[in-house]
């Protein structure tokens, strides 16, 4: 039985590696889309407009302002949490820590963790939390802002996991990691409580980096 399990895991690795190697792989683009027909130089061109993350303004753990413009040239991962959360948050950030370790020296990959309890999670509390987690530099930001603003933004992030909308506590509490590309389009959602989903996220970030490197995503 054990041998069987190991061989299955081995097989999964093989499959995963096979996917990584194919340079042509691109990630899907999630959310609603609409065709827009424009006339350019007398020719009719139809373009697709994708769902993108709207403007926002928050404060990070260093007290600095962070807006959508702060991420103009970045691939980033977003999640929602609060520092006193005893249930799924520790396991999410244990998993997110592996994403941080993998990309902390990659300048165009960032992590954004939005607190949904801004009354308790002040900038000072978030800084202490980040310190205790061992986070330095500017690759993982812990963001604070008005609760309504955070929830509104969350709706925009979570459109692609709509099937769980009636889950207990709402989607914001469901522990998702959301992958966003440099055009602020959603490219993947992952269950942040599962190590295997976290490995897929790391692989997908690399796929996305390769897309930009090969100039396939414009």
């Amino acid at each position: 039985m054990r041998l069987f399990n190991i061989s299955i895991i081995g097989l999964l690795f093989l499959v995963a590696c096979g996917n990584n190697k194919s340079a042509d792989k691109t990630l899907p683009i999630y959310g609603e889309r609409e065709p827009v027909t424009k006339t350019i130089d007398g020719k009719t061109v139809t373009d697709t407009v994708y769902h993108t993350i709207p403007e926002f303004k928050f404060v990070n753990q260093y007290g600095a302002e962070v807006t959508e413009k702060s991420l103009d040239n970045d691939i980033y991962v977003a999640d929602f949490f609060f520092t006193t959360c005893p249930s799924i948050c520790p396991i999410m950030h244990r998993n997110m820590l592996t994403v941080y370790q993998e990309f902390k020296n990659t300048p165009d990959v960032k992590i954004l963790s939005h607190t949904i309890d801004p009354n308790h999670d002040s900038v000072a509390v978030l800084k202490k939390y980040a310190d205790n987690l061992g986070i330095t530099g500017n690759s993982w930001w812990f963001l604070q802002g008005p609760k309504e603003t955070t929830y509104k933004l969350a709706e925009s992030y979570l459109v692609s996991v709509a099937e769980d909308k009636n889950a207990a506590g709402g989607l914001v509490h469901a522990g998702y990691f959301i992958l966003v590309d440099k055009q602020k389009r959603i490219r993947g959602t992952y269950d942040g409580t599962k190590p295997e989903d976290t490995q897929k996220l790391i692989a997908d970030i690399k796929t996305l980096q390769a897309e930009y490197k090969n100039n396939k995503t414009i």
């Binding site: 005893p86 249930s87 520790p90 396991i91 244990r94 820590l97 205790n132 987690l133």
Partner: peptide
């Protein structure tokens, strides 16, 4: 217990 203290009782950085 496991969500916070981890599968191998490893805790989480300096938090847990």
């Amino acid at each position: 217990c496991q969500n916070c203290h981890g599968q191998n009782g490893e805790g989480l950085a300096a938090l847990i």
